[in-house]
Design a protein around this nucleic acid. Structure first.
Length: 240
DNA sequence: TCATTAAATTGTT
DNA sequence: AACAATTTAATGA
């Protein structure tokens, strides 16, 4: 798929006028980034608004002490960077490809022009920003109030948010280590959490991936005594 | 196509 | 954090 086709298939691409499409056709670019490669870097000038055509990236911030704080994953179909374009013109996080990834690039000036000349596009951007705000509010809430199982569940549920990450299937190709980075939970706890969530019928654990069965259920999950009992029973059964 | 090996990931302590 | 078990991917016969 070419970058312009990806643009026109996006939620915001469908609501543009012809004049907007004409300009995008000549200006949209595409870039391929290998696994582990950088998509954007903290402090560097924002030149493009970016969309993930395929693959997946994660956003993180490198702290002074050398540790990295992962913010969130960005799945195929999602667009990001509107906050940096509108707010500071400088990237406020690092973007790293978790797998080989293709990125669609919309020049900053074009993005701003769309905001000013297309009410429909402006509405899309507001919607997107608001949803991102809701995501981060939710993540802060769950980090401060809830146990690791709930954090993992909600983190996964957010990756299936239809506004931020449209057209995501039910399969999420993430190792338990990567889920740990995204949710801020040690891998051992991720492993345990996934087993509980699987026993609760909300997802299925695969090698290097999870199948999400119930996005709403994940979003609303709370750990109860019965969940740990369920897990204990499963373990006893597997030992005998 | 199948067997062997290395690498990645998972599950447990 | 460390370890063992499991799964996948790569290699070559």
């Amino acid at each position: 798929m070419r970058a312009i086709e990806f643009v026109l298939m996006s939620e915001w691409g469908k609501v543009l006028d012809q004049i907007h499409i004409d300009r995008l056709v000549t200006e949209v670019r595409e870039r391929e980034v290998m696994r582990g490669g950088a998509i954007c870097h903290t402090g560097s000038q924002v030149q493009f608004w970016k969309g993930v055509m395929s693959g997946m990236i994660k956003t993180s911030i490198l702290a002074d002490n050398g540790r990295t704080s992962t913010l969130t994953g960005i799945a195929a179909g999602a667009w990001f960077g509107e906050c940096a374009v509108l707010r500071s013109n400088v990237w406020e996080f690092d973007g790293v490809a978790m797998r080989d990834t293709r990125i669609a690039l919309v020049p900053k000036a074009t993005f701003l022009w769309l905001v000013e000349t297309s009410p429909a596009f402006c509405h899309y951007v507001i919607h997107q920003l608001n949803e991102r705000l809701a995501q981060y509010s939710s993540m802060i809430e769950v980090e401060r109030l809830e146990v690791p199982e709930t954090r993992v569940a909600r983190c996964l549920a957010w990756l299936f948010n239809p506004v931020l990450y449209p057209n995501v299937g039910s399969r999420l190709d993430l190792s338990q280590q990567e889920i740990g980075y995204l949710s801020g939970v040690p891998r051992q706890r991720v492993n345990r959490a996934l087993q509980i969530l699987e026993a609760a019928g909300l997802l299925e654990v695969r090698y290097g991936a999870v199948h999400v069965l119930d996005q709403q259920g994940l979003m609303q999950f709370r750990l109860m005594a019965e969940h740990t009992l369920l897990l204990d029973r499963l373990r006893q059964r597997s030992q005998t």
